[in-house]
Design a protein around this nucleic acid. Structure first.
Lengths: 238, 238
DNA sequence: CGCAAGTTTGACGTACATCAAGTAGTGTGG
DNA sequence: CCACACTACTTGATGTACGTCAAACTTGCG
């Protein structure tokens, strides 16, 4: 558990090129309505393992992932770590608007995000109901996702957790069976409430059962998505 | 795992007496601003173990507990159950505004709630910014609480979970060391991701260590809140 | 008072954690 | 382009916290 994760963000790059702004607009879902947000967003480059914000920091920005990936996590004093969520390109995070952040946000890999100042975003939302509605909807989705996480952590076995994770990543990447898994085994373990060894064994087991096969360093092919889905939802499997 | 938890809500009691409405207004925190909500709230009496809504139901109301207590839970097909949260007098729930509820809400004991029609509440919020802000803030608090739940389930031991639970109930009941615990051992177990036996053993152990003592059927006195707090946050204890 | 439901306690089993090598990637400098 | 080192991952042997099964006990209610 190295403590070198100091805030080492590269310069804010306030003069973001047009090309980048185009990418921002072309996000995922109801982003059409968020076009007005472009104006107040600033591009930010974050190095691998660098923190975007730390637990306890005043929460002054909302972020959107452009490329790369981000994790939000909590560290216990004896080194135990729990990852609350991962954020992939198109995802927003940091909109849990308490006074201060209760989790740390770190980049999984070199990552580009857009940061929206909270003050300005609040003002914008106040006079643009569609934006307010979209923010509300994103909050609700976040809450729902976290509640799913709770069910998984509270009541699923190691194999079920892993299947759940893989299926979830697939959904988030558009439902293709070829999935990118930018997180390390340690990250996966800390997200699923397991150890790195258990995750590794699980993956090996899934390969043996032909549920998945490795296609690259951080890429899998789901060869038995139905079996995985069944496992993920807590059914018995033959 | 009895399946008798059919929707057996007592008649909506639309003619709520003035006295009850007074109670509604005198909730917990920023409820002063919610006075305008009184007009659209209807009182509802729910029998012990009856469901207010089921997983999959269209989400058409938001609720506020007046007396009694409510749990939201998810059932897996083999009988495993996970409780997402408990709601005590003054708490709002059901404002996770997806199209449908993804959890079932049941009364722990005979319970009285106020139900606010979602449509009307949305309209009210739209033209009353303070209400919108309060709803947003409640959502954020809910999200934060759920994230704490995730950390607990992912990384804490049985004893730590139990301590965390007791401390949390104490906070919610105003910080007194005399706490009401209206939930059964099974409820506590399903909330903490443990079994009923492990919960029972934990409580016995805490009594032996003089951290708590039973004062009534559903009441404890926290005699060692500091030790409990230390345990809850994952520290080592002598 | 007596039954049923809820809780506690005990004996035992197991899924996952821990400890400890080994192996395969990944990046760097010669 | 290859040798080296470093980190990430895998695999095996063993331990243990918690789950499971089962029986007593306690509590509340008719």
């Amino acid at each position: 558990m190295s403590a070198l994760l100091r805030r080492s963000i590269s310069p804010p790059n306030l003069a973001a090129p047009r090309a980048v702004l185009a990418v921002i607009a072309g996000g995922r879902r109801e982003d059409d309505e968020l076009a007005a947000m472009q104006a107040i967003g600033a591009t930010l480059h974050v190095a691998k393992n660098a923190a975007l914000f730390q637990e306890g920091d005043a929460s002054e920005h909302v972020y959107k992932v452009v490329s790369g990936a981000v994790r939000t996590c909590r560290m216990l004093m004896d080194g135990r770590r729990q990852i609350a969520d991962f954020f992939l390109p198109g995802d927003f995070f940091g909109l849990d608007w308490q006074a201060t952040h209760c989790f740390t946000a770190e980049a999984l890999t070199d990552t580009v995000v857009i940061s929206y100042p909270r003050r300005q975003l609040e003002a914008l939302a106040e006079r643009t109901p569609p934006i307010h509605r979209v923010l509300m909807s994103m909050l609700c989705k976040g809450l729902a996702a976290t509640q799913e996480h709770v069910v998984m952590l509270g009541r699923q076995t190691a194999h079920e957790r892993l299947a759940w994770f893989l299926i979830r990543v697939r959904e988030r990447s558009g439902g293709t069976n070829e999935i990118d898994v930018p997180m390390s085994r340690q990250d996966i373990a800390d997200y699923l409430g397991l150890t790195i060894e258990t995750v590794s064994r699980g993956i090996s087991e899934f390969k043996r059962r032909r549920y998945i096969s490795a296609v690259g360093a951080h890429q899998f092919r789901l060869t038995g998505p139905v079996a995985l889905q069944a496992l993920a939802s807590g059914e018995a499997v033959a």
